[in-house]
């Protein structure tokens, strides 16, 4: 049972890959809650949808590789250009001319790319626990290379394609534990592990072997962003150190909301503060006639 069901759902098909989207109708501006890494699917926004949908029109979709969408295993199918094109295809398919976008982790970097590349479509972006080249590495993430075959896989060494192919579930349990670093996160952990196991190690390996966005190009796009930006990051994030968020806010001229003691997915673990911040951000930056409180 969900707190709120979509008003309609649909699919866009690109190169035979089908992407499932949901629309929660309302007046006012649209906010697109973007997919994150294929480890999770659109249910990771479950604490945001019912609240935001009371104030705005909300669109979500499952990124390729999980949820109701197809799961290609060819790394080329996960190239960043392709993920950006998926987002634009969903906007078009849902007749969304302009929208706010929000993303978590890899979804945060997707949101930032959309904001930089499509200024005429993106009214503002919320970047949560965003994965970029910026900032310091979290000290604990000093693992062996992703492709190296090891005898044992302890701790961050589990971030390894061979381990995923043989012990995918154990990896997801380990990784989701690092995502929800806040005490008493058992439910969020259970949810996360559940979503992660709706896809496979093989799919996840493909997402990692794709071409990655070059550091200089990323910086260039970030610096070109002109729309309002809200950066949200936990100081206790064990996946991506919060120094990245400070840099991100500085480069984009964005507002920074640091969550002291927060982990990598504050939208799941601290939904109230995140919901209110997103609401406030959209309300302040929406074109005036579109405000509907």
């Amino acid at each position: 049972m969900r707190a709120r069901y979509p008003d309609h759902t649909g699919r866009v098909v690109r190169d035979d890959i089908s992407i499932a989207y949901e629309v929660y109708e309302n007046g006012g501006p649209t906010i697109v809650l973007l997919p994150t890494w294929s480890l999770f699917h659109s249910r990771h926004w479950k604490a945001q949808i019912p609240y935001l949908a009371r104030h705005f029109r909300v669109v979500t979709y499952d990124g390729r590789g999980n949820g109701q969408s197809d799961r290609p295993v060819d790394p080329d199918a996960y190239a960043s250009q392709i993920l950006i094109a998926d987002a634009m295809a969903v906007l078009d398919a849902t007749f969304t001319e302009t929208a706010f976008v929000a993303g978590v982790s890899m979804g945060g970097s997707l949101a930032a790319m959309l904001a930089g590349l499509y200024p005429e479509r993106v009214l503002g972006a919320v970047l949560i626990g965003t994965s970029t080249w910026l900032g310091n590495e979290t000290p604990e993430r000093n693992s062996a290379a992703f492709e190296t075959r090891l005898d044992r896989y302890d701790g961050w060494d589990k971030y390894n394609m061979h381990y995923w192919q043989s012990n995918y579930r154990d990896f997801t349990e380990f990784f989701v534990d690092r995502i929800f670093s806040e005490p008493h996160s058992t439910k969020q952990w259970e949810d996360g592990v559940g979503w992660a196991n709706e896809t496979t190690g093989e799919v996840l390996v493909a997402t990692q072997l794709k071409e990655t966005l070059d550091e200089n190009r990323e910086r260039e796009v970030l610096a070109s962003i002109r729309c309002p930006i809200l950066v949200i990051h936990g100081t206790g994030d064990r996946i991506k150190h919060y120094s990245a968020a400070e840099e991100l806010a500085a480069i984009t001229g964005g507002t920074l909301l640091l969550i002291e003691g927060g982990g990598h997915c504050p939208q799941g673990r601290d939904p109230v503060v995140v919901n209110r911040a997103i609401h406030n951000f959209v309300e302040l930056n929406a074109p005036r006639q579109e405000i509907l409180i």
């Binding site: 806040e182 005490p183 809200l230 100081t235 206790g236 806010a249 507002t255 920074l256 909301l257 640091l258 969550i259 002291e260 003691g261 927060g262 601290d270 503060v273 406030n280 951000f281 302040l284």
Partner: peptide, 15 residues
Amino acid sequence: GRAMKSRTWSRGLSR
């Protein structure tokens, strides 16, 4: 035209 201000919010149990 209120601009949002950057700030730190502390989790309840982190305070």
